[in-house]
Amino acid sequence: MALLEASHLTKTYKDISVVNDVSFSLEHGKCVALLGPNGSGKTTTLRMLAGFIKPTDGNISFNEDRLSKDFRNYVGYLPQFPVFHNWMSGKEFLIYAGQLAHLSKTEAIKRADELLDLVNLKEVRKLRISKYSGGMKQRLGIAQALIHAPKLIILDEPASALDPIGRREVLNLMRELKKDATILFSTHILNDAEEVSDEILLLNEGKIIEQGSMHELESVQSTVTIKLSFTDEPKFIEDRLKEIESVFKVTRENNDYFLTVHDLQIARKQLLEVVHRENWQLTRFEVAKTSLEDLFMKAVKK
């Protein structure tokens, strides 16, 4: 049984439809990535699910509990740019958020302590939020979204604005959260989606153009691109590369070669044999374009 079902969600602002007939369902315990270029309607979709804005058409139903219409009770939401009461300390804000979600004061304090531990903000819990760095604020934002132990956690671009370390921390945290909650997060960073999500919803111009589990999407995708760099240009390299049977396209950009292959396993084996035989000074071997990126580009360019 799905935790949430969204059917035919549509949102129009003055005749311009930002989200157009979007339907999907979220299964319990899954981590779903909402992918799409900027302006594709990701944030609007998430805001509808978080109960901020009402869809122009279509509806959202939580199967968990039909008693309360206010589904903010089951949803934890992290906006793209979380803003807090900067005059509060991190812990104060969490307690405040918890109490707003109908926790008692003692429950809220206990929960705040647990979460400060989880998001690694214990040391700065008594500091005013105005003194927090961007990464700290993002983690505090995640903590406040979790304060009332929501069934569904909605994260709007949780890692996009962070440095590599902050991003890593957030992704690890999400992996941790996946164990006991359902997560829906939006991103335009494909690596993030690939790394933590079980399922993908690909959105473009307000419509879902592709959806499915990571495995399904990968198997649909038939080609992989490999990037090669060398210290000095070997002779006849392009011809030699083209001779490899599993490679069916070779392109050159600056000093890098991009090979399009069908089967990564076979291609890698054959390619490295050639490199070895010809004694090429290979400095870089990289699976450059992931299948997801390919899929994304194709789908969006359509």
């Binding site: 939401y77 906006p79 979380p82 803003v83 807090f84 958020a97 707003l100 934002g141 979204a145």
Partner: peptide, 13 residues
């Protein structure tokens, strides 16, 4: 204006 409204109102307030 600051955006804190969004965080507060994401709770069942």
């Amino acid at each position: 204006k600051s955006g804190v409204y969004e965080l507060i109102l994401s709770k069942p307030v």
